[in-house]
Computed example of a mutant assay.
Amino acid sequence: MGDPQFKIGMKFRDFKQFKDAVKNYGIKNIFVMNFRPNDSRRCKATCARGCPFYLWASLMERGSTTVQIKSGFMKHECAKEHKNRHVSAPWIARKYREQFRADPAWKLSGIIQAVRLNQSVEISRLTAFRAKSIALREIDGDEETQMQSLYDYRLELMKTHPGSTIKFRCDQGVFEAMYVCLAPLRLGFLAGCRRIISVDGCFLKGLYGGQLLSAVGVDANNCSYPLAWAVVNKETRMNWIWFLQLLSEDLSIGNSHGWAFVSDRQKVLVLV
């Protein structure tokens, strides 16, 4: 599909696969292709510059989706086209998905340069931005869909980590906060970590925003030990009290004697 070589009798799964192959051929060889007529029974691919090149494809038989090239003239007699509409944002996102996965911060200028060198096509910054957005959405997932699966996520965590504490807080059905303390982390902290807990918050960059509150301990090797975290709508006193109360219940802290809490890496003792 990356560099198709067409011939009479070649078969495709459906018209979409046929048109994708023709578009990839045009991108690879720097031509722009048109599709007309283009319906559920037939499709003709021609060169946009009007040269004799054409491919005629139709269904092999009624009731089937298999498409076959029935006739064609597969030589171009026109110049190359360095402004190719087939090099669209979705196409770039699919073509360079692994590069986006390896470098989510890939700059727009780098995307434009890669397309220019590899496809000999000029794209705008807007096309590069859209391609990056599509690729990262496909890699990271759609936030709206993920938010709808929060309860499924909770059930999966409870299934794989029995005894964990995972709680939601909602206001009239609207999600406000989520608290997570996995049982293995809690038991490991109580068994081998010092009674020192660092708490901090940071902004969440995404469709819904919010704050991430976290509690981190110190293990026997003086390394950070994740203990519990919460996603809240805002970093407020009420949200911090809610988070620390749940944390104290998980750790059975009835008396603050012997416990030290550090906030923003400052030596501040907090009584619970």
Results as ranks from 00 to 15, higher is better:
Met33Asp: 11
Ala89Met: 05
Met178Arg: 11
Gly201Asp: 09
Pro104Ala: 06
Asn233Ser: 15
Ala230Asp: 07
Cys181Arg: 07
Pro37Arg: 02
Asp39Glu: 06
Leu246Gly: 11
Ala220Gln: 09
Glu138Trp: 05
Gly173Asn: 06
Lys205Cys: 07
His82Asn: 07
Ala57Phe: 03
Arg62Gly: 03
Val231Ser: 09
Leu204Pro: 10
Asn29Trp: 12
Glu122Pro: 00
Thr165Gly: 09
Cys47Leu: 15
Gln99Gly: 04
Met178Cys: 15
Arg186Ser: 02
Ser256Glu: 10
Glu249Pro: 02
Leu271Met: 11
Ala260Asp: 10
Thr46Glu: 13
Pro184Trp: 12
Phe35His: 08
Arg97Asn: 11
Phe243Lys: 13
Phe73Gly: 02
Lys80Trp: 08
Gly201Met: 06
Lys7Asp: 02
Leu185Pro: 00
Thr160Val: 12
Lys132Arg: 15
Glu77Pro: 01
Phe168Gln: 15
Ser120Trp: 01
Thr160Ile: 03
Ser64Met: 11
Asp264Gly: 06
Leu126Asn: 14
Arg265Tyr: 01
Lys44Trp: 01
Gly63Arg: 09
Ala93Gly: 03
Leu136Val: 08
Leu247Arg: 06
Glu156Leu: 13
Met60His: 01
Gly163Cys: 08
Val115Trp: 01
Asp171Met: 11
Pro4Met: 08
Leu251Arg: 04
Arg125Gly: 07
Cys193Glu: 05
Leu271Cys: 10
Arg186Val: 06
Val199Gln: 03
Tyr208Ser: 05
Ile27Val: 09
Lys167Thr: 14
Val174Ile: 13
Gly163Met: 09
His82Leu: 14
Gln245Val: 12
Ser71Val: 03
Glu138His: 12
Pro4Phe: 08
Leu251Met: 04
Asn34Phe: 12
Asn34Gln: 14
Ser109Thr: 13
Cys181Gly: 09
Phe12Tyr: 14
Phe18Gly: 03
Leu187Asn: 14
Lys11Ser: 11
Glu249Ser: 12
Lys167Val: 12
Ala215Pro: 00
Met74His: 07
Ser149Glu: 14
Ala260Gly: 04
Arg49Tyr: 03
Asn38Ile: 08
Gln211Asn: 11
Asn38Met: 08
Gly110Phe: 00
Val232Thr: 12
Leu251Val: 06
Phe168Ile: 11
Ile123Val: 10
Ile134Thr: 03
Trp259Asp: 13
Asp171Gln: 14
Leu190Arg: 11
Gly2Cys: 10
His161Ala: 07
Asp3Ile: 09
Val270Arg: 02
Ala191Val: 01
Met60Ala: 04
Asn221Lys: 08
Val218Arg: 13
Ala48Arg: 09
